[in-house]
Amino acid sequence: MQQVQAVVARAKGEPVELTTINVPDPGPGEAVVKIQACGVCHTDLHYREGGINDDFPFLLGHEASGTVESVGEGVTEVAPGDFVVLNWRAVCGECRACKRGEHKYCFATHNAEQKMTLEDGTELSPALGIGAFAEKTLVAAGQCTKVDPEARPAAVGLLGCGVMAGIGAAINTGAATRGRSVAVIGCGGVGVAAVAGAALAGSSPVIAVDIDAKKLEAAKANGATHTVDSSQVDPVEEIKRICAETYEGAEGADVVIEAVGRPETWKQAFYARDLAGVLVLVGVPTPDMTVPDLPLIDVFGRGGALKSSWYGDCLPSRDFPMLTDLYTSGRLDLDAFVSEEIGIGDVEAAFAKMHDGSVLRSVVIL
């Protein structure tokens, strides 16, 4: 066992604390990773606010890259010294989804068996089974995905959650490609990543919708061909107008990605689709939210598909190395998502910046 500094949320709504934790030596199937960079994600704030569950205290942080320090018995997929991006979906290989070859839908993903603790022995709940606002963390070896060690840690670490969720929502879930139009409602980190994914896939037009001018500028810088300020115009009608300019007869976008997670914007996304269009929900709603009232004939008559995108329907072992290679070759600008680099003691301040739209991602550098 070793002791390291880490960021812990002890109680609902209280400021996070930088404190000492105990990290066990890796057991069978586990790895200890020395963290190099970790993005500050809205999900970490949800944990602190009790929006995920009430298993306090939480060890926050999950959007991370680092170097494998040690591995436990039976680990073959990674070795000490490997540069990895952490994922929160170590696939089991044995469930019904894995057995039919759909590992990205694994129904039995897992984390480390042992628990990290506070100095007094209190067990910690690591965010998304990772807990990477820490100098070192313990994970299941399957949560470690090897990528190009020449890649910038602060940039590729973001593939561990938000950037992958957005790109995957566009490419994996929505099947954005050449000849298809895409609209993204909500341009935080995940929404801008969805814009980047649609642009990478060759979709056109790529329409970004938000009420914040700074977020719309970030979307434009990452591939949006059009921006829509939904505080000034009806976003549904504007999406329809833009798409009809490109494709004669279009009644909306082929793929509409809702990256907010609210009933109002989900309903906008539903009606902003073209006939047979796809709606992708990647924004995370709260448990009390419900699907808005819709005439069932509209659900039937418009056709298409209503989908949810969980982690961008990604398979980390396939997608992380591929996206890292696109980054290192200059085809995917992950650096654009790193708004600032901060210290491990600055997480609480980074949470505050989320509310003013001034950052896509603050990234803790260790």
Rank of each mutant, 00 (worst) to 15 (best):
G312N: 05
D229V: 10
F56Q: 07
V156F: 08
P292C: 10
A201D: 07
H226E: 13
V4M: 09
F56L: 09
S317K: 12
G261H: 03
S70L: 04
W266H: 00
A90L: 01
I21F: 12
E17Q: 15
C144V: 13
L118P: 05
V75T: 13
I297T: 07
V209P: 07
P126S: 13
A350R: 11
P28A: 15
F337D: 13
A183P: 00
G249W: 08
T122R: 11
A170G: 08
N111G: 09
G252P: 03
E248I: 06
P263Q: 10
A276R: 06
D288N: 13
D82W: 00
E30Q: 15
T286Q: 09
G66D: 05
L45I: 00
P80G: 14
F56G: 12
L306T: 06
A224N: 01
V256H: 04
P28S: 15
P24M: 14
D229K: 07
E264I: 04
A140H: 11
C243R: 02
C92W: 01
T290V: 09
W310N: 06
M354F: 11
A253K: 03
V236D: 05
C314W: 00
L45W: 12
A201S: 13
R89E: 10
Q2Y: 00
C92Q: 02
I52G: 04
R10A: 15
L323G: 07
T290R: 14
G39C: 14
K34R: 14
G277W: 01
V91D: 03
A352Q: 13
T117H: 07
V209F: 01
E49F: 01
A127V: 09
A201C: 06
G29E: 14
T324Y: 08
I365Y: 04
P149N: 09
P287V: 00
T265E: 03
I130L: 15
A199T: 07
G157F: 05
S65P: 03
F133L: 03
E94W: 10
V184R: 00
Q3P: 00
K267S: 06
P285W: 05
I239N: 00
A155E: 07
D313F: 02
P149C: 05
A194C: 05
I52V: 15
A224F: 02
I52P: 01
G223F: 12
R273K: 08
Q5N: 10
L296R: 13
C95K: 03
G191R: 01
R331Y: 03
T117I: 11
L138C: 12
L323D: 10
S358C: 09
T137G: 07
L118E: 12
E123H: 11
P321N: 04
R241D: 06
H42V: 04
A259M: 01
A218H: 11
T19S: 08
K115C: 12
E17Y: 01
D44F: 08
A79F: 00
I239D: 00
A305T: 06
I344D: 11
E123Q: 14
G74C: 07
D55Y: 11
E245P: 05
L60G: 04
V147T: 07
Q268I: 00
R152Y: 01
M116K: 13
G51F: 10
A199P: 10
P149Y: 01
S308K: 08
G189E: 05
S309T: 03
S204P: 01
C161V: 02
H62M: 12
